[in-house]
Design a protein around this nucleic acid. Structure first.
Lengths: 275, 275
DNA sequence: TCACCGCATTGATTTACATCAACCCATCCG
DNA sequence: CGGATGGGTTGATGTAAATCAATGCGGTGA
């Protein structure tokens, strides 16, 4: 029991780093290649102007203390498909997503994969952690994160008790979501799962800094394969279920990643478990 | 965003209360009947002598401050089969299990149920909470819990910052467990699920104050139905899988609730996903 | 330009698990 | 004592979703 925000090992990093998707395929590196631009933490006004601060854990830091936050945050850009947390690797850093979408997952030795969640802007990564990461993380589209070393995070927690309570709140929310997902995975049918997913995505789109999805128009950044791995289904079943929902007048499936929710009511009936 | 340990509504309660299983069937009451014995919080030395304190969140309270803890804790005895947290009800109290086993679950309107976890002695209940409980809880065998009102808990957190960090650690552990369970429910076969479950139960038995299960001898307090609801299977599949494991020389199935693990290695191969 | 690749859709077939059903064996209780 | 009840096992059958397979489509790069 070494403490959840104990000593870290990584040295202080520089202002802006970019993790490139430069490998032929999506090979994983536990310590991704970085391109450093500038040095010495983000600019003092960076956090002040941050678009996700109002909805993120950082919101509990008073404006007068913002410089403390900016000192320890390292902004990082991660290109699509690039992994930046490896399941089982030593947990040296925590992250806060500022733009883009991240998929979080666990895998079995033979390659079966379960996506445990999608992290949108404002989401804090690193709660499900002991000494090593309990999950992997990969950028779906271009992602920006603020990175905090474990030791800097620990200092912040010592100095700002409110931050700790806010993280507890965040953990609480994640636990509620996790339990909902267990119910979905253990007891819901394929149709119920997809309906629940679409409603959740709609709900999620209403809250953060993202452009609000008007008229039920969703832009899902993830592939069918990701949705399948999230819902415990196969690609084919997700595809068939979406087609069936279209045939029932519940949704419209646009080209690419667009899905329009036509009848929230019908989906809610489905998601609640009536068929 | 009302804060996770905000104002509660319940009045201070008395020393020892007993929640009886006095209904013909297992009817649920959101406010269970109590039999009060004595009054005014538990005795001062109660927490000092508590068998689960070393492994519970209470361990972070210094011996000199133990009286503060004892003042706000209300010991409660819950008889087998009795529910004491109702999913969706206002979250007025938090609990710490001191003996027995609790099942935590979520349900769909049509009765399908997913057990999200079993809480053994030392386990803290109430992290997956917003203003209302996100889960239900029911005693499997005779259960003792320490109950804390939300507002008393909030005061404790203000006075003992270590407690907050310890709760965060607890939440972190639960998140890790939840993600493992998502992988199990979404991607593992029935055999893999049962194998994982047995190994987890063995692991859990090694840690807390419970009698250590020597020689792989497990005493599972829950029914096949509970195991099925935990693993996202049916009773019949659980039973058949256990029979199959017996036929393979992996386990021995005793009468009642006893199961002996004969070959940890074989189970581990199974649980990891090799068949 | 065309070949290739990742992603998606749809159809045919298989299968792991659920469902339906019968039965055993305790315990409880009138 | 005897019927009811709850938990457990095992067998026969059904089915939702997985698997196998073919096709289309839009980007990308030689």
């Amino acid at each position: 029991m070494s403490g959840y925000f104990g000593a870290g090992t990584r040295a202080p990093e520089s202002e802006l780093e970019i993790i490139m998707s430069d490998m032929p395929s999506c090979q994983f590196e536990s310590r991704p290649r970085r391109i450093v631009i500038g040095s010495g933490g983000v600019q003092a006004d960076f956090c002040t102007n941050c678009s996700v601060r109002p909805t993120s854990v950082c919101s509990v830091i008073e404006p007068s203390d913002i410089s403390r936050l900016a000192e320890v945050a390292v902004e990082t850009i991660i290109s699509p498909g690039r992994g930046f947390i490896e399941e089982g690797a030593p947990a040296t850093d925590f992250f806060n997503v500022t733009s883009g979408t991240v998929k979080l997952f666990k895998a079995l030795p033979d390659g079966r994969r379960q996506i445990t969640g999608f992290a949108a802007p404002g989401h804090f990564l690193g709660l499900a952690v002991s000494d090593s990461y309990a999950f992997g993380a990969e950028a779906i589209d271009t992602v920006r994160v603020c990175r905090f070393s474990r030791e800097k995070m620990s200092e912040l927690l010592d100095d700002f008790p409110k931050l700790e309570r806010r993280l507890l709140e965040e953990a609480s929310n994640e636990l509620v979501a996790a339990q909902n997902q267990m119910l979905l995975l253990g007891r819901k049918t394929a149709r119920e799962r997809v309906a629940s997913f679409l409603l959740d995505q709609m709900q999620a789109g209403l809250l953060p800094g993202q452009p609000p999805p008007s008229g039920g128009r969703l832009h899902l950044p993830m592939t069918r394969g990701d949705i399948a791995d999230y819902l415990g289904l196969t690609i084919e079943t997700v595809s068939r279920t979406l087609s069936w929902m279209r045939s029932q007048g519940m949704i419209e499936v646009g080209k690419g990643y667009a899905i329009t929710i036509v009848s929230t009511a019908k989906l809610e009936v489905l998601a609640a478990g009536n068929s």
